[in-house]
Amino acid sequence: MTPGPAHSSIVDTSRPHPARVYDYLLGGKDNYPVDQELGERMPPVAKVGVAQNRAFMQRAAGWAARTGIDQFLDIGTGIPTQPNLHQIVQEINPAARIVYTDNDPIVLRHAEALLISTPEGATGYLDADVREPGKILDHARTLLDFDRPIALSLIALMHFVPDEDDPYGITRTLLDALPSGSCLVLSHFTDDFLSVEQDKTEEYRSSGISLRPRTRSEVARFFDGLDLVDPGLVTAPRWHKDTPLPQDSGVTDSFHVGVARVLR
């Protein structure tokens, strides 16, 4: 789910990993005691927040598919949690094509679950770091048609990219490769609404995980030059288009989210 140092097929169980902590907070089973320990140190709003973030992804991906986009590049895929993105969009359009990208060995082990496509569509998986946008784009071109609109999904990912790694530049490189009519679906952790007691950023950092919460204005920079669709840049439970506003709206606000169109 997040950038890491070197790629390896060996799962390091001595240190927590964001993808596995996320899995634990969602009630999954693909995590280890070290991930569970960090998850338990998170405030109760964290579990609600990741669930709301996941629900945002489902609503946004479904909306993009219903607008006619049938190609998706999902970077920072994370451990498969049903429904996966391809299940959501292929239920709407069976011919949809999806490229998943992550760099966590445990996600690689589950890649087969991500590759079960409809006969009409296709899915692919690449083991790569978001900080390798050129590699990601080269691979995506083998499955996706870059002359037609593509939805770029960056869900709960860029807050693991520190400022010195130029998260805005990485995002711009990816977006510059997409044709007009494409869209960016992005969610980003924020501590704008967290109390001092609730803010556990240092807990992550002390566990060896780089975490960079960003303010609303900082997250807005990812959408520079794009056309934000209504309701704009909002918190996760408040984003909806052709589906009802989630009933738990306002329970917690730990992610800024948005969807924007690429216009040339």
Rank of each mutant, 00 (worst) to 15 (best):
G4P: 02
H7S: 14
S8Y: 03
S9Y: 06
I10S: 13
D12C: 04
S14W: 09
P16F: 07
P18I: 05
R20A: 05
R20M: 08
G27N: 04
G28Q: 05
G28C: 12
N31Y: 04
Y32C: 03
D35R: 07
D35K: 05
E37R: 14
G39K: 11
E40S: 08
M42R: 11
V48S: 15
V48Y: 13
V50S: 01
Q52W: 09
F56C: 01
A60W: 04
A61I: 10
G62P: 15
A65T: 05
A65P: 10
G68P: 08
I69S: 06
D74P: 09
G76S: 11
N84C: 09
L85Q: 00
Q87T: 05
I88L: 12
I88S: 03
V89C: 04
E91H: 08
E91G: 14
A96I: 03
R97Y: 00
T101A: 13
T101H: 02
N103D: 11
D104S: 04
V107L: 03
V107S: 10
V107T: 13
L108E: 14
H110W: 07
A111L: 00
A111I: 06
E112K: 11
I116W: 03
T123D: 01
G124H: 10
Y125G: 00
L126H: 06
A128Y: 12
A128C: 12
D129Q: 14
V130S: 01
V130T: 10
G134L: 07
K135T: 14
K135F: 07
L144T: 05
L152S: 00
S153E: 04
S153F: 07
I155K: 02
L157Y: 07
F160S: 07
P162A: 01
D163Y: 11
D166E: 13
P167D: 03
D176S: 14
L178T: 04
P179V: 08
P179C: 05
L186E: 05
S187A: 08
H188P: 06
F189Y: 14
F189L: 14
L194A: 09
Q198V: 01
Q198Y: 02
D199S: 12
D199E: 01
K200L: 05
E203Y: 13
S206E: 15
S207P: 15
R212A: 13
R212Y: 10
R214Y: 08
E218G: 09
F222L: 03
F223K: 07
F223L: 05
D224A: 12
P231S: 09
G232H: 00
G232W: 01
V234S: 00
V234E: 02
V234H: 01
A236Q: 15
R238K: 04
D242Y: 04
D242N: 11
P246K: 12
S249M: 06
S249C: 13
T252L: 10
H256Y: 15
G258E: 01
R261G: 06
